[in-house]
Amino acid sequence: MSLTILNVVIAVVIAIAFAALNAAYLVWAERRGAGRIQRRPGPNVNGPLGLLQPPADGLKLMTKQLVIPGGADKALFVVAPVLAMVPAIMSFVTIPFSENVVARSMNIGVLMIFAFASLGGMAILFAGWGSRNKYGVMAAVRAVSQNISYEIPMLITVITIVMMTGTMNLKELVAGQSGGIWNWNLLPSLSSPLMPVAFLIFFVCTLAETNRAPFDLGEAESELVAGFHTEYGSMGFGLFFMGEYANIVIGASLITILFLGGWGCPLGLFPSVWWFLLKIYLLIFSFIWIRWTFPRTTIYGLLNLSWKILIPISLFNLLLTAGLLKVF
């Protein structure tokens, strides 16, 4: 019994370390990537290729004073950044990186990740409301309506997949797709011909759920200054930042697990954790690419996209799959 607890503790520590490392170095990757896209070098002074930039930034943020604005709701203001970071880290616990590299394989893995992802929206609401800043409140309201309206098509898509595979365990989801690219959920199957569309919906929803451009309305810097984290400095801001990148890793992991065969090789050979990492980093690169290419949508354009396009299509897909599953 105590050995299991020890195992879990070690796994959680590794999950935290992985999340923090990813968050720090994805910022570096994002800035370097943006630099390449914009034909400028990006951070390249500290260390080789600027690799020491994240620790330097982290140190700077940690040594700065945490300023709580007058009139702010202190409890909410302090809790919010923690609430942004912790669920993101907790979600790592159940993500299977390979057959054996998984902290805790749960039968309700998918549900747990979505439950934690919903907490992220609350962190933004707390931050915006707690800092008593008009821009913050406006951004928080935007972000919450965005999170709610994009969780629905996302969950409907997940239900479609769960219906097809009959499991909510992330490990079994991947196991069902093993054996090569032709078994991946990404491709249309007899019972669910609209799978590529579902993948696209899920991809767009992931962008929206992680508050990434072109859906970064919660921190639309040209109209809402810095959105919900306007009043945050020092590590409060740092935690929001890390939470955002940790969420991106989770989003990419989920896409990989649900659609791209997890740790399986496209040709069905040598499944390993490296395939998983390769897939999530390719996805993350595409997120970065999209962010630095597109302008931002409007709040009503965003909500229209979800309620008028994504939800009807994903519902149709769900019904179609349900019907075809009966037939075949």
Binding site: A34, I37, Q38, R39, R40, A213, P214, D216, A220, E221, S222, W292, T293, F294, P295, R296
Partner: peptide, 16 residues
């Protein structure tokens, strides 16, 4: 203007 709309990259091209 494109930066006002949230797209940062065109500014860099324009500046070049």
């Amino acid at each position: 203007f494109v930066m006002d709309l949230g797209g940062f990259t065109p500014l860099m091209y324009a500046i070049e």
